[in-house]
Design a protein around this nucleic acid. Structure first.
Lengths: 345, 345
DNA sequence: TTGTATGCGTTATCAG
DNA sequence: CTGATAACGCATACAA
């Protein structure tokens, strides 16, 4: 930190391994070995001199330099639809936790629900040469970008990278999924069990695989019970979508609908508010159930019936799967939690 | 992708600039210039040949290599207390958005409420040589780590890095804050205005500056009104903390308390559930107000009175402040939103 | 055990 | 406008 004429300090650059070596009076190679690699092959006296020098200079190895020297980075790239969504932030928390435990750095990109943006992200992500790419909440069904995305990721994998998809099965990559179909079916049976017979489903566009699976699972759970076909309302995969669908349902006259299944909790919670704003009381005039069991499910009124998904664990599993190099899939169990938003009737 | 004897493919490494240059029949220097640098200085024919070659090979420049060649990276390091907390995830969303608009990559680290961990993170972060370090939700008041953290960040800045703190003023770095004191004072006056006179405050340990500011601001807003000193309950800065404090308040007999101010919304929402679980109805038996106005504030029942903080904007501002290189602070306005959790009495 | 020399992929300098 | 070539900071094969 050299003082300048005006009293400020010159932007001195961080110490390099070279500086450490000089300070310790050894060669740069010895310094390198002492600090990370084979500690056995360096005389302990020199080793401690080097460590002391590094500490004195507050040296931190330049990760980019290490990356190009070693030919591999220590970063994990995570792409999500929206960080602010509790579903994704919970998953991200799991990913970050597992990564930090392995000394890896997590970079984060937001696809914002656009397949094109997602593709572009993955494309430029490769510039980071990350060890792992984790894609959560993709919506690549049917769109023309699907093949491009797969090709991009496949090529990345060929170059030694690991790919893990979250909730996006039947892509040729390791995947961690939750049992969306089974959970929704179980939920349907639970609702039948407490007396509901006429349903509406608030679902997202079918390109969103998660939404479709949950929708289909719900129908499957109803099969054979003899209840009428649920009314299906397509809307956004967000709180606003749930709110809007609820308003729409009330406007069109919902008399015959006894309970609504929204394919995720943020939609369900939005729907509850939508119903209430329309003068329909959730849990009294109409039952409401969601999926994910996010934290706030127990803080809304009435508490929301949902299907518990271990979201943080999803993130952890994704990292574990990636690090184990597994191509096999991990499927996490889910469980129905019936609360007061669907009282017996 | 060379085919191997067993039919699998060898882990071929990604194409380098060298490959692109060879493919285009130019030197590596020309290829480099054509792809990023001074496009003017390369014959347009060659430029397009290079671009074509890059596209054909699906070339992505190795960011680490660029970083060491150019002497600077394009990454922004963000450290938060907890990604899953809606307060931080909203801020993170803003940071990521602004960063992506500037072509920067965001890396994320989680301090988990530990000052030691935070210090350690910042220390190792320097290895990334990020352009910017943004620290959100620090709790470094009083602890011995404070000076170490400041020194670490100061040194980083001396080396040309930019530091921005969020909600952590009186540190010698650029800061984006919200008007915690003013907002809380305004809230206090609003509650007085609708008839409340006896309060309790659920606050976090005073090392958390945000909590202390809001607490003090609330008291300041009450000053001169002649109302009795609010009851102060210290608890965790989390939903669980709010829940616990509510239970505790009910147990000790809360008859004289008319309204509770919890220093953030997740605490307030936890408190509402805590009250309800204890048989006390929020908005009827007791008023509840929070701070932040997170999304779910309108989805709980009764809707939560709060102080609106533009959280996403906080993240955006932090990035803007960092990129503009400003040392000056940004202070974002807040505004009280009175809802049904504090009905007139 | 240590040091020298080379290479990693890219940019930048400097002659042609 | 182009092409060698020298950095950048670090790891490592090779030689001593």
């Amino acid at each position: 930190m050299t003082a300048m004429a005006d009293g400020s300090t010159a932007p001195s650059s961080p110490p390099t391994l070279h500086d450490v070596a000089r300070e310790a009076g050894v060669s740069i190679a010895t310094a390198s070995r002492a600090l990370n690699g084979s500690v056995r092959n360096v005389r302990s006296e020199n080793a401690s001199r080097v460590r002391a020098a590094a500490a004195k200079l507050n040296y931190e190895p330049h990760l980019s330099a290490q990356a190009i020297a070693k030919g591999s980075t220590r970063t994990v790239a995570l792409v999500v639809r929206d960080v602010a969504d509790p579903y994704f932030s919970a998953i991200a928390a799991g990913v970050v936790q597992a990564a930090e435990e392995s000394g890896l750095i997590v970079t984060m990109a937001v696809a914002d629900g656009s397949p094109e943006r997602e593709l572009e992200i993955v494309r430029t992500l490769r510039g980071q040469r990350p060890r792992v790419i984790i894609v959560a909440g993709s919506r690549i069904e049917g769109t023309g970008t699907r093949d491009a995305l797969v090709e991009e990721l496949a090529e990345y994998r060929t170059a030694g990278g690991r790919v893990v998809m979250i909730s996006q099965r039947d892509l040729p990559f390791g995947t961690v999924t939750v049992d969306n179909r089974g959970g929704a079916a179980e939920l349907a049976r639970a609702l039948l069990g407490v007396g509901y017979r006429r349903f509406a489903v608030f679902h997202a566009p079918p390109e969103i695989r998660t939404s479709r699976d949950r929708h289909e699972g719900f129908l499957a759970g109803l099969a054979g019970s003899g209840v009428p076909e649920p009314l299906a309302l397509e809307t956004g995969f967000t709180r606003a979508g749930g709110y809007e669908a609820a308003r729409r349902l009330v406007e069109r006259g919902f008399e015959d609908v006894e309970a609504v299944f929204a394919v995720n909790d943020v939609m369900a919670i939005g729907a509850m508010t939508g119903f209430r704003d329309a003068g329909v009381v959730p849990g009294v005039d109409i039952g409401v159930a969601g999926f994910d069991d996010i934290e706030s499910a127990v803080d809304v009124l009435p508490p929301l019936t949902s299907v518990a998904v271990p979201l943080r664990e999803v993130g952890l599993s994704a990292m574990r799967l990636a690090l184990s190099g597994g191509e096999q899939d991990a499927r996490l169990p889910v469980g129905v939690v019936v609360r007061e938003s669907t009282p017996p009737r």
